[in-house]
Design a protein around this nucleic acid. Sequence first.
RNA 1: GGGCGAAUAGCUCAGUUGGUUAGAGCGCCUGCCUUACACGCAGGAAGUCGGGGGUUCGAGUCCCUCUUCGCCCACCA
Length: 948
Amino acid sequence: MARATTQQPAEHADPPEAAGEQAASTRGQLPPHYDFSALDPELYESWEKAGVFAASTSQSARTGGARAPFVVLMPPPNVTAVLHMGHGLNNTVPDVVVRWRRMAGDEALWLPGTDHAGIATQNVLERQLASEGLTRFDIGRDAFVARTRAFVEETGGTILQQLRTIGASADWTRTAYTLSPELSRAVREAFVRLHERGLIYRGHRVIHWCTRCLTALSDEEAEHAEHDGRLYHIRYPLTEPAGGLEAITVATTRPETMLGDVAVAVHPDDPRYAAIVGRTVTLPIAGITIPVIADPAVEQEFGTGAVKITPAHDPNDFELGLRHELPMPIVISPEGEMGEITDSAGRVPESLRGLDRFEARDRIVAELKAAGLLEKVEPHRHSVRHCYRCDTVVEPRLSDQWFVRMKPLAEPALAAVTRGTIRILPERWEAVYVNWMENIRDWNISRQLWWGHRIPVWYCDDCDPPQNVIVSREDVSECPHCGGTVRQDEDVLDTWFSSWLWPLSTLGWPEEDSDDLRAFYPTDVMISAPEILFFWIARMVMAGYEFRGEAPFHTIYLHGTVRDTQHRKMSKSLGNGIDPLDVVRLYGADALRWTMISGLGMGADVMLDPNDLERSFAPGRNFVTKLWNIGRYLLANVGTGSVEPLAAVEDSRLQSADHWILARLDAAIAACNEALGPARPPGWDRSASGTTWPPAEQAAGMRLNEYAESARAFVWNEMADWYLESVKHRLATGDADAAVVRAVLVHVFDAALRLLHPIVPFITETLWRQLPAREVAGTFLAQSSWPQPTARGSAGEFERIREAVTALRQIRADYNIPPGQMIKARIASGNPEAFRSGLPIVERLARTEMTLGSADGEAAAAHAVLTDGSEVVVPLAGLVDLDRECTRLRSELSELERHLLSLEQRLANERFTSKAPASVVEAERQKQQEWSARRKLLARKVEELCAG
RNA sequence: GGGCGAAUAGCUCAGUUGGUUAGAGCGCCUGCCUUACACGCAGGAAGUCGGGGGUUCGAGUCCCUCUUCGCCCACCA
């Protein structure tokens, strides 16, 4: 039998025993599974070689071309990064969107690149040095930077190579790097311009300091984490008792900072302390005298209502210190050790100097206790800031840093979102963005690191302020005022100071006339994780307005996080990660992409099971295999010979199944388009100025999971399960009708591959290139067109066939009628030819015979009522016992009656009929009629069968 | 401390402005190697939509409240 050929395992694709069979020669060419590991890399290479991903400025409508530009910027991964699942998600999403737009006729640009990642990369190199027993100070700045640069050149960009394996269709010809000469130029330009506008200034204040990285951090880089600490109540004895008090008790979570105390503050209205304001206390351990002052910032209710003031080691105390013109001694070193660092002589006893701040804490507490000055210690849960790179507890520390004045920058960036030029999806993040912008604080941009953009500021030691500070676009070798020697600022800029220019700098800015800038700025969609909304995305918006006067993009799409089954974020340190390259190896890139996209509700996290890859990735692989097998069937049965274009097939030649699948295709295309949504707000492809999202589109689109599901359901549940199965016999005849099927099938499959290509590019491209329908030999699906509806289908007739067939299958299953057993079905009404012709292959295998006629007079029969009220009857003579059928019918009837009753009650309710929309009422009436008819038929059946 | 979100089948999640008998994938049960596909086909079981209250002709959907979980922000030491 023919079956024998299909049973052959893949390795024996050309079995000798099948040689005599005609079908075997074609069918044998393709194995039953798609060999992604062999085909995908080759395919990617040919895409890249053919320039499929490269965008051209001359095509952009903004620079004289005919296509709307569509631009997505890759959030640049750290240059030292290796691909993890987060990258997988973060890059699959834009790839799907970009591939969609590329097919939809846009000039699509996905611009890739890497970030030099100052602090992160420096940490990597410092760890390397540490393993050799060295620190960066041992080898010096120049050697360290050189070594880092060499390391980056050698190993950097690995991740960009890895992104190719998951199919990322980025324009690699434009690959950018935040520390490249071009981007460095943009960084300097931005710094100097902001400085000229008075938006960059040198500030002396308390900042977040990482004692391990030895650098200042921005507010965003100092992350809050809840921590179970203690609140220490410490008695500071009054120099002279007053107001009945011997001492004043302060509460603190960081006793070690008391050595830097310069005052004790109380609320001016606090009656408890009114008498001692203006007096002095003796600071224990240090043994110095400090004043008691009054300030309204003190909360009377918290702790004891008295607070110790350490201006150099607490931002609040610093502000208060400024108001009261207090001294600001620094008692903790950059490394986090106690010492008399600045203006603190006589404050730190010899025994504490050089001690780590946390050891010092314990020591000080012990000493206080011994001296009877520790009143009590309470458990106190509070949040402590940590370095976002090394998790070290951040030490607030007085220092000189460069700051960006953010308020003026935030104004247009805030307005862009509130007025709707930029939308944020999911919408709930909009409030978060707005809140941050409204409460924006100045940005500390200087870092005491070696790896990064050196701050373009030079100092002349011979000139007086303000001439001694030179801010310059070009390197400065001598003082422009006195001609003397200058020295450059030792610090580098925050990594994010180069990242926030990404939309501008990667397109050629500050060259205002750059072709790329004119053709591709503003970009379109910014796709990223919510974690960097403030670090990066919000600042890009500010930079866009500040330096170019336009929003950098119109949509911010924040996807979820990849988590494990316990909802923990996947991370190397937790050891719960999944290596995307393992997944690619075992399941294929398409399967990985499928899992990412199909599981991605709007803003929802993607849950994966690191211990059960099968569970997470089998669905994608299975779908790919399904597609592959549809393709196999097509190639074997349609062949590669020429096929009539669908447009050449007159409607009269189409049968019910053909009409149906064409209608379903149109519905699928519409559903996919709806889910993907508008690509841009009106007018954006020309200019962004004044553009806003229409309210109706504000939250539309970017439902990638819905798009995936619509396409999948069409291909699998409609095209494969029904259409393919019901046209097999027609295709086999080889006559004129077979030509119709070939035309429809090829058209529909071609459209399906187009619909699916953005999600599963490898399998679809591979199949498409073998289809007889491809436009021109040598072209790629990746750059072909997005499918258009045919407007030629109608679903009605075949829907009835599907209903009838499903009814037959239920009857078969209910009565355990064996697969080989022929059943004779009678359809109460309809076109018997259409039924016969539309039967799927399984029913047609000498299993079902359909006739048309009244259902009357079948005594022992199973039956089903279709939605149009007609019946399908299968005589059961000798096949089953009637009691079962009776029971089944009765339960069906009672269920129907229950529903009908509630429906009728609803319709009888006058308030319903008067208040509900007419269309709803009409639909309910229709339903009532249908159900009544069905009830009648069912009741009669029950009477006939179950009477005896 | 402030703000936001989530809770729907055993698991992961859909469910768009309130309107048919609440869906999908995985898992589970039954039967099937049937002309591409057992990584498959056919059929099936399974949900008082977190608890309570309210608005409405009608609530998974809107309002209030409680519980649990998660996220963001935050200068009460």
